[in-house]
Each structure stands twice: as C-alpha cells, then as structure tokens.
Design a protein around this nucleic acid. Structure first.
Lengths: 150, 150
DNA sequence: ATTAGTGCAAAACGTTTGCAACATT
DNA sequence: AATGTTGCAAACGTTTTGCACTAAT
C-alpha cells in the first residue's frame, strides 16, 4: 500500500511544508500520510477515524484545517460532487480523470494516464477565451464488481 | 434570451411532466421556465429570487423540490463543485463541458460542441471495466473579462 | 519565549423533511 | 372529492469559526 514513490512524495511534501515555516505536528503528519498513502479517495470522516487510532484526541476541525491548508498549496485534490461529504486525493494533485461508482460509491483512478485531457482542455479554452488553470473529468457509472450479477 | 429552440424545449418538458400526472402549478412552471431559459447556470437562491418577482410567496423549499424532481427526470444538470451552492443547467441536460471562472464565478458553455468527450469517456471506461452512464468535464480558469487588465 | 496549531463548542451554510393548509385535476 | 403541491419551520449533515490551551520551534 505504501510504495516507494508514495513515500518519497510524502517526504517531499512534508519538507515543503516545513520550509514554509509550518509546524509538523504529529496530527498533521498523520493526516498528510493518510492522505498521500490511501488510494480510496477518503472523506474527512474516514480520515479522522483513521487518525484517531494513533492520536485519539484529534478533532475533526484539525482534519478540516489541515486539508484546507493542503488544498491551498495545491497538494490535494478535492472531489466534491452534488452530494455531501467531499472526498480527497492526495496522491496525484494534478488533474486526472476519476471513475465514480454510483452504486457503491467507490472512486478509482483510471489504469492509464490520459494525455488527451490536457489537449482537449486547452483547445476548449482557446475557443472560448478562457485561460485554464485546472480541470476535472469525472466519469459516473458502475464499477466492475457492482456490474457483476450476484 | 428566449430563442425558438429554448421555448420548444420548455413546451416539450412541460408536456412530459403533465403526461406523468404531475401538476403544472404556476410556481412550477415559473421555475422550469427560468431553468430552461437562463444560460448563466443559476443557483437555487438566484432562481428563487427570480421567481419571487412573479410569485412573491414562493418558498425556497418549493424551488428545491422542483429541482429535485427535474434532476430525477434527467431534465436538469446539477453542477456542484467543492464549494457550497450547486448551480443548475436546464438547457442542455446531456453531459457537456463547462467553463468556470474562478474569479467572478461565471459558468459558461463552450462555443462548440465536443464529440471527443464521449469517446474519451468510453475508452477510459473500457480500460477500467466500468460501464459509464454519465460524465462531467469542468474547466477552471479566468474568463475573458477577468483576464483583461483593467 | 514565541507563535503556530489544537480541540472544543457553537455557529454557519445549503439542503431536506414533516406537516397542515391549499389548489389543481 | 381526491390527492398532489405549497409554504413554513424545524431538523439535518458538513464545514467553518472563535477562543483559551497546548506544544513545536
């Protein structure tokens, strides 16, 4: 679950935070690690629960504040849909597609990277006079296990 | 602001609702018209305010209920981002890209239709074993007037 | 010693719901 | 007359905020 690439991103990210004079409190480190390590795009509630096992007094507010911080730094992607309870992607902060299962709620990343997306974004931007700084491509449907007859 | 195409969609939509035994109350008609007519992707609050001028007693709850109804029927697209206050597109309920200005909040539709999106969605779906039923492509950046130096 | 961060409780926000009164069919 | 719809107010769940306390530097 914690490959070398993920761990080096964790270190680099913590270093970037420290370099800005931000304090690396145990809670903060735990939240960041959780965010960078997990690939299930957790909710704030799920992150909080996970942190509690190691730091039982951690408050929800702290989780929210830390996420807010990381969002500002562009280190985390917020995936909010119409519904309540945003989910977060701290593994790959650059825009990339997401596959959302409308039955079980699972969110996964597509197996292959997708270069066309940026091109497409640029082209649409050019036609409209917008200058694009980010984009989102979300695909809704049934994941393989929810498709399967049971 | 109300071209022929938009108006015929309005009629068709109202017909579809009536055909299901739903009642065409004045409030409902007003909300639907507003939703189909406007191209600025309004919030619930904005819709409510617009309805109030003709029907001063209309409640927010009624606006929410009507939108919920239309969403269920696939007649309206809900555009929720991380932030609060979803916005709605009742002109083109089929998935299409949206350009969101991160400075002034304007949401606009790209000038040209974009066929590649569906292809791309299908391809990613195939690679991942998902069966896609809907998708969303949102582009964030600065609109032409917010880009312009003042 | 400083000063940023924590944790609690309360507030804010958009949205949903229950229900009695009402209006469309 | 029957029943779907309205409008109010209260409830909901998530997220934000204020502030005294704590801990990292």
């Amino acid at each position: 679950m914690s490959d070398t690439c993920t761990l080096s991103r964790l270190d680099a990210l913590l270093g970037r935070l420290k370099a800005q004079g931000l304090r690396l409190t145990p809670q903060r480190v735990a939240i960041v690690r959780e965010l960078v390590t997990r690939c299930d795009h957790p909710t704030v509630e799920q992150l909080h629960k996970a942190i509690l096992t190691a730091f039982p007094t951690t408050s929800l507010a702290t989780v929210y504040k830390t996420i807010h911080l990381l969002k500002e730094q562009g280190e985390v992607l917020e995936l909010g849909f119409g519904e309540l309870g945003s989910r977060y992607d701290g593994r790959r902060p650059e825009p990339h597609p997401h596959l959302i299962c409308t039955r079980c709620g699972a969110i996964s990343d597509p197996p292959a990277a997708c270069a066309e997306l940026n091109e497409l974004a640029e082209r649409l931007a050019g036609q409209s006079g917008f200058s694009i700084s980010a984009h989102r491509f979300d695909l809704f449907g049934l994941c393989p296990s929810c498709r399967a007859p049971r």
